[in-house]
Design a protein around this nucleic acid. Sequence first.
DNA 1: TTTAGTGT
Length: 307
Amino acid sequence: MFRKRILQIAQLSSVGVAGYYVGQYKGKANENESIVVHGKAVKNMPGLPIFGTVSAAAPYTDSGAPKDRVSQIMKYGFPSLDNVRSYDDFVLSYDRRNRVPNWVFEHLTKAHVAKNDQVDRSKCDFHPDESIHPFFRSQNSDYKGSGFDRGHMAAAGNHRLAQKHVEQTFFLTNMAPQVGEGFNRHAWNKLEKHVRKLTKVYDNVYCCTGPLYLPRREADGKSYVRYQVIGANTVAVPTHFYKVVVCEGPGGALDMEAYVMPNQKIPDETPVSSFMVPPETIERAAGLLFFDKVHRSKLHTINGKKV
DNA sequence: TTTAGTGT
């Protein structure tokens, strides 16, 4: 059934994701499995930042090496630490290589998405984010004439509590090139509205959004990841976008939904639900773990199905 | 309604 959904997406996008995931989505979430870190078995506990930058940067002393060895090796600086940026109403990780976000995180409630006459989207302008090094910063000129929209990852309509909040969603750090007609302005917008509507049912909605670069089988039978880049700063045009949401009901019950949509014109009648995929699929493709602190067994449903 | 780009 999941495979069928992926196939639908693959057909829609002519992107061969199907073979990529077959037999894999059941493989995750074995919480009792031990993981070897620094030659020691470590229990795979949700929320333990085994793979995080923090642990990579922390000195490891069990080998008898000098405590400050890491700081000696890295004397002149780490090439990157996660490039996380926190704004007033959303948080993102910026992909300096592709000049688009890795992921953007939002917390939505009824109040955050409610209509607010004090907030005017039309007063907002797209701005380059000066906190990003100029080598990696995307500019409005990169998008101009490209044929692609500056597509919000954290949607402007999700941040209506204050004018300042909606304005911050217009930083180019929150943008990725999206097909406008039939995608950003239609199918993707429909998905964003669906997520906003979840706040009518749930007290809290946690939403993670980002790009994907999925491999596709080409004429020679081999798979390649191929994507366009635009502008002087070679901003990557993702092949797909994902959205993973966790919804918290009144009793603390958790439901998860996960979507992947191809960055292309999508027929208007296509239901949002046809883009549902197992969250593991996105995690494997993106190299990210979503809602790692939530034990998957605490989830009542994933994509509307009992776990 | 919300998502934007282009032309003025």
